[in-house]
Design a protein around this nucleic acid. Sequence first.
RNA 1: GCUGUUGUAGCUCAGUAGGCAGAGCACAUCCUUGGUAAGGAUGAGGUCGUGCGUUCGAAUCGCAUCAACAGCUCCA
Length: 638
Amino acid sequence: MVKVTLMDGSVREYAAGTTLFEAAKALSQKLGREVCVALVDGEICDLRMPLEKDCAVEFVTFDQPVGKKAFWHTCSHVLAQAVKRLYPQAKLTIGPAIESGFYYDIDVETPFMQEDLDKIETEMQRIVKDNEPIERFTLPRAEALALAKKMEEPYKVILIEELPEGEEISFYKQGEFTDLCAGPHLMSTGALKAIKLIQITGAYWKGDAANKMLQRVYGIAFPKTEQLDDYIKLIEEAKRRDHRKLGRELDLYDIYDEGPGFPFFFPKGMVLRTELETFWRAEHKKAGYDEIRTPLILNEELWHRSGHWDKYKENMYFTKIDDENYALKPMNCPGGILAYKRHIVSYRDLPQRVAEMGVVHRHELSGALHGLMRVRCFTQDDAHIYMVPEQIPAEILGVIDLIDKIYQVFGFKYRVELSTRPANFIGEIETWNLAERKLEDALISRKIAYTINPGDGAFYGPKIDFHLVDSIGRTWQCGTLQLDFQMPERFDMVYIGADGEKHRPVMIHRTVFGSMERFIGILTEHFAGAFPTWLSPVQVMVIPITDKQHDYALSLTKELSDAGFRAECDARSEKMGLKIREAQLQKIPYMLVIGDKEIESGCVSVRSRSEGDLGAMPVADFSAKLKKEIASKYFELK
RNA sequence: GCUGUUGUAGCUCAGUAGGCAGAGCACAUCCUUGGUAAGGAUGAGGUCGUGCGUUCGAAUCGCAUCAACAGCUCCA
């Protein structure tokens, strides 16, 4: 007998060899939901695994991330099976479950069209209907290779060859279809009730642009059709939040054919930018930063010295002035370093925290451009911190804390990645290891959950990246913190120590917003255009009911503007209903309706975006309310 | 940059057996002065992304090019 401890702490006994599925079945009434896979002593297992020794078991349903993965991974196999039935010549590569849904990369002669997708989907539904049981079996490496060769799946052969020697290799089989796979999977294909193939795109084999481009079919699936309908609704809702759409509708910003990747900001968009900058300056002043500004164009020779010529030339724009070669800066650091070197610096002056709203130009690949999120000219809220080595830990923590504090003002959740030494690094490996350790120590001491992104550091140093999430779940790197021992070396930066000798400082490159453009894009989607009052381009719309109240409304608007609020008056000869509708669509926080009643009483009828109709109140009370609201979101941090 | 899709009025989109370019919103003028999400009438606005080609004739077919969208790659 085997003793099994369940999640609720209860212990049950089963005959050795009983499968997890049989155990789950016995418990199914208690669980009340269909089980996808199980966690046995923390390891994800198929339900077909037999119980062999005492263990702790947690049955996982589709509602849990692990359950979703197993469910969707089974979908990948069904997709592959359907493709092989319809296109026997197709060669399979890999097909994992992803954040939401699944895909399979397939090598086919002619790219799939929408009609192919429909056909594949129909075939998948047939496989689901047949409710094929899924079997797992393992083979020694040599036999696994022979099987893959027999199946004429060259990519699978490569995948098996890359697996470590000596281990048994697992396969999963459903009906006539067998695939190399580590699992876990569902017991059978029947549970995949609602499947939808979303789209078809190209993707490189092994993610390398030098390799062959494969066809990637994306799909999503749920145990119930209602869940699929909800998912589709969610995606449509998210598209309504797209910052490119809202940027036009709210008259904030746009990008035209005449300047791909070079955004225009209109007056209302500039209000956002300016407010963000004002906030940013206030926070940086408190955190002990000074601010500088360095040139957009600098001599090409500087970029040779910095290493950008060697490592970053492809992304740079060049120009010629009086027969001399110049470059538009893709980064702010070399300019900042020149500013550092204008004095002999004493250790007493360190750390120096020097911020710069730096406008940079980068020649991004045309296919990478994406609204404000990925552009070719952007303003980094950059800063460089120069310090003596002993100051590294405290300065890293200072930056992490500042970023956290600022993100919290907007209510952002974020993900943290530690990006390590890339292939094209400069400097010594030991220095890199030291820098990576310093960054990791800081994350650990702040108990911040992070993932490691190997090889993704800047060419001059490892970095901590802060990722924010857009409306459809894509994440964008915004804040970054890079620890750099290389640039100080290259630029022969020094400070004079207590011993009177020259020493090498260390530097941190960092941003909080990342870029004003990307941050504004994220912000637009995060708030769906309904920015908090302190950021709203128009905070108050004054709406006179008829032309008779225009003069009064205009003077009230001026009064509010003079008090420092962004107030506008809709003095068109339109019906009030229309003015309210439009103010609502523009997501303006407050509407003040002015009719004869209001003029007589000296009150305003207030309609709030978030609180609805607030009724009549004296103008002074409204001003006080607005002032308090703006202050609570922003100035409380001072 | 790669794969696929798309490009018609400021915006959202109709418009093929190739035969005189359409709608709604927005805009202008006039009427309407209305109490919490669209009052009415009239009008103006486009060489159909660009170029070349096929054709008696091209928004429509072909080629090239530019841009956008989705994904890959890359990145703040």
